[in-house]
């Protein structure tokens, strides 16, 4: 990766208001850097703040969230100044595909409408031109009869097809970076591989950068994000969030992580929501444990988490 990365997230932390009026630190110390045309994985267990980190980059955090750190996209600061920085690139240069294709598409708007409304907005083109681009994009993600599909509604498609449509919609505006938030988690295993292959192909064809969020390291390795991946993990509760030292700094060797970290300190009075502790691990190709992890991710996860 030469020069500055396209997207860099530095020491991102996010805290959310809790029901009892306090604040919970949901994300802490996330570092991610993605270069042009690169695919980077962000892995972590459920609830560790992967989605929140992505939403922070888009400036779409739930109201009341406060953030620390920096998100820089192509030299532009995205956080701060009331999220105006993110609003300028959102959907246009920076697109996102959400976790659950069943709920991420609007049930009452036609596929065509959802494919084109942001095109018309961002690219200042006419309806007909937008339709043409959208149909081409649907064709590219292998939706059969893309022309007719434009007039149909999401409920008339299967989950896998909906995710393809969501991807097509995200990519139609020609973004430079796609954040794919667990694009296959809600899908049948048989469709998962297809979606992943699609993302990888699109990345190559469209010279796209991809931040792939997943909790499945197998997915990461399948996509060839071997070289660069970031791990997030939960492991800290509300009480200890400030006091506890970082559990992991698994720079080169995740094996050095203390075992005890695997079970967060029990705090009886605290609501079940265990709050995530994040640790960043940009790894290096010759890091042995990583290589091992990627060869057999499932076992690796079981042994660590």
């Amino acid at each position: 990766m030469a020069g500055a990365p396209l997207l860099s997230i530095e020491n991102l932390s996010i805290s959310l208001p809790t029901a009892d009026g306090g604040r919970a630190l949901a994300v802490r110390g996330v570092d991610i850097a993605i270069g042009e045309g690169e695919i980077v994985g962000l892995a972590g267990e459920s609830g560790s703040g992967k989605t929140l980190s992505a939403l922070a980059a888009l400036g779409l955090l739930p109201s009341g969230a406060t953030t620390g750190g920096r998100v820089v996209f192509d030299g532009r600061e995205l956080m701060g100044e009331g999220g105006r920085g993110a609003a300028a690139v959102r959907g246009r240069d920076l697109a996102m595909v959400f976790q659950d294709p069943m709920t991420a598409l609007h049930p009452m708007l036609s596929v065509g409408r959802q494919m084109t409304e942001h095109l018309v907005q961002h690219r200042r083109i006419g309806r007909a031109e937008a339709d043409r681009i959208a149909i081409a994009m649907l064709d590219r993600v292998r939706i059969p009869n893309p022309k007719e599909a434009m007039a149909r509604f999401p409920h008339q498609f299967s989950g896998g097809m909906r995710q393809r449509i969501a991807i097509a919609s995200a990519l139609a505006a020609g973004p430079r970076l796609l954040i794919a938030d667990e694009p296959t988690t809600a899908l049948d295993v048989t469709v998962q591989a297809g979606i992943l292959r699609l993302i990888e192909n699109l990345r190559r064809e469209l010279k796209l950068s991809v931040l792939l969020i997943t909790h499945d390291l197998g997915v990461m390795s399948a996509l060839g994000c071997r070289g660069r991946a970031t791990l997030t993990r939960a492991g800290c509760s509300t009480r200890c969030r400030m006091a506890a030292p970082p559990i992991t700094r698994c720079r080169h060797c995740p094996a050095r992580r203390p075992r005890s970290a695997a079970s967060p300190p029990a705090a009886p009075s605290i609501r079940a929501a265990a709050l995530p502790r994040i640790s960043a691990a940009p790894t290096f190709p010759n890091c042995l444990p990583w290589a091992r992890a990627m060869r057999s991710p499932a076992r690796w996860i079981r042994s660590r988490w």
């Binding site: 959102r90 959907g91 959400f98 659950d100 709920t103 942001h118 907005q121 919609s169």
Partner: peptide, 20 residues
């Protein structure tokens, strides 16, 4: 989710509210 997705597409808030 679909409203968040509409925002992620960069639609103006007015469209998000009135349409989505």
């Amino acid at each position: 989710d679909y409203v968040r997705a509409a925002r992620a597409k960069g639609l103006p808030e007015r469209t998000v509210i009135l349409r989505h």
